[in-house]
C-alpha cells in the first residue's frame, strides 16, 4: 500500500517536468519526422502525405549537398582542432593549478564561450578582413602576401573553423579541467616513480583515463558544430554581400527552404538527415571511446 502510494506520488511529482520536456523536446522531434513525409507551404491547410519524396529530392539537390559537405567539413574541422588543443591546454592549466594566475588562465579561455555569437563573429570578421585585418598585417611581417580570408572558398571555411573552434575551446577546456581535477593523484605519483616524464604521464596516464571526458566533449562539440549558422551568416558574405551564401551550411539551407521557399516539409527532411548523421556519429564515438575493462 505504502509502496503504491509512494509510486503515485513520485509519478505526480515528475509529471510536470515530463510534460514540459515532452512538449519542448519530444514533440518537435516527432513533428519534424512527420513533416518530413509531407508537403507543406506554411500557409495552406493542406499537408498532403508524399512519403519519402522529400528525401529522394534531397539527394539530387546540389545546394543541399554543398551545405551538407560544408557543414561536415566545418564540424570535423572544429572537432579535430578543439579536442587535442583543449586537452593540452587543460593539462597545462592543471599543471599550473597552484600558480596565482590559474584562475586568469581559466577565465581567459572560457570567455569566448560566453561572448554572444554575433559580436564575436564581428570581431573575427575584422581580424580576417583582407585589407584592414590584423591577421594579414601579421602575415605580411613574415613576408606572406595578404589573403582573402573571407572570400576565398577554401579559406573562408578555414576561417569559420577557426572561429567555431575558438568558441568551442573554452567549454572543452573547462570540462577537461574538471576531468583532470578528478583523476586520482596517486596514479600520477605511481607513474612518476615508474619513471614517467610529464609528457609520458600525460600520454600514458591522463589521456586514457580522460576517455569518458573526451567522449562527452567530442559529442558536444560535434553536435554543436553541425548546427553552425550564426558564425557563417556574419562572417562569410558572398561577392554581392549576401550573408551566409559564401559558405552554405545545413541550418541556413533549412531556413531558406522554410521561410524563403515555403517548403517546410522539405526542410524538415533536411533536419531529419542532420539528426540521423549526428546520431550515427555519436554512436560511433561511443563505441570507439568506451572504457576498456567494462566490456
Amino acid at each position: 500500500m505504502l509502496k503504491r502510494r509512494r509510486w503515485i506520488f513520485s509519478l505526480v511529482a515528475i509529471l510536470p517536468v515530463l510534460a514540459i520536456f515532452a512538449y519542448v523536446r519530444v514533440y518537435p522531434i516527432g513533428e519534424i519526422l512527420r513533416l518530413s513525409l509531407h508537403k507543406w507551404d506554411i500557409l495552406s491547410r493542406e499537408k498532403p502525405f508524399i512519403g519519402l519524396a522529400n528525401f529522394q529530392e534531397l539527394f539530387g539537390d546540389s545546394l543541399f549537398r554543398t551545405a551538407l559537405f560544408n557543414t561536415s567539413i566545418i564540424a570535423f574541422g572544429v572537432l579535430i582542432i578543439t579536442l587535442p588543443l583543449a586537452l593540452v591546454l587543460a593539462a597545462l592549466i592543471h599543471h599550473r593549478t597552484r600558480s596565482r594566475f590559474a584562475s586568469f588562465y581559466e577565465t581567459t579561455i572560457f570567455i569566448p564561450h560566453v561572448v554572444s555569437l554575433v559580436p564575436a563573429a564581428m570581431a573575427w570578421k575584422w581580424i580576417f578582413d583582407a585589407r584592414l585585418g590584423p591577421l594579414n598585417a601579421v602575415l605580411s611581417v613574415f613576408g606572406i602576401p595578404p589573403q582573402a580570408w573571407l572570400f576565398d572558398p577554401v579559406l573562408s571555411i578555414v576561417s569559420i573553423i577557426v572561429l567555431c573552434s575558438w568558441q568551442a575551446l573554452g567549454f572543452a577546456v573547462l570540462i577537461y579541467l574538471v576531468g583532470f581535477k578528478n583523476l586520482p593523484k596517486s596514479l600520477f605519483e605511481a607513474s612518476k616513480l615508474d619513471g614517467a616524464s610529464g609528457i609520458q604521464q600525460f600520454w600514458f596516464v591522463a589521456v586514457p583515463l580522460l576517455k569518458p571526458i573526451t567522449l562527452y566533449v567530442s559529442v558536444a562539440t560535434l553536435v554543436s558544430a553541425f548546427n553552425v549558422y550564426a558564425q557563417v551568416y556574419v562572417l562569410a558574405s558572398d561577392a554581392q554581400g549576401a550573408p551566409g551564401r559564401q559558405v552554405r551550411v545545413l541550418v541556413l539551407d533549412m531556413l531558406e527552404n522554410t521561410f524563403r521557399n515555403y517548403r517546410v516539409g522539405y526542410a524538415a527532411s533536411e533536419a531529419v538527415v542532420l539528426l540521423v548523421i549526428v546520431l550515427i556519429l555519436t554512436a560511433i564515438q561511443f563505441s570507439l571511446l568506451r572504457e576498456k575493462g567494462t566490456r
Partner: peptide, 8 residues
C-alpha cells in the same frame, strides 16, 4: 594504500 593501479 589505494594500490594506484592504472585502470586502463
Amino acid at each position: 594504500q589505494n594500490y594506484a593501479l592504472y585502470p586502463h
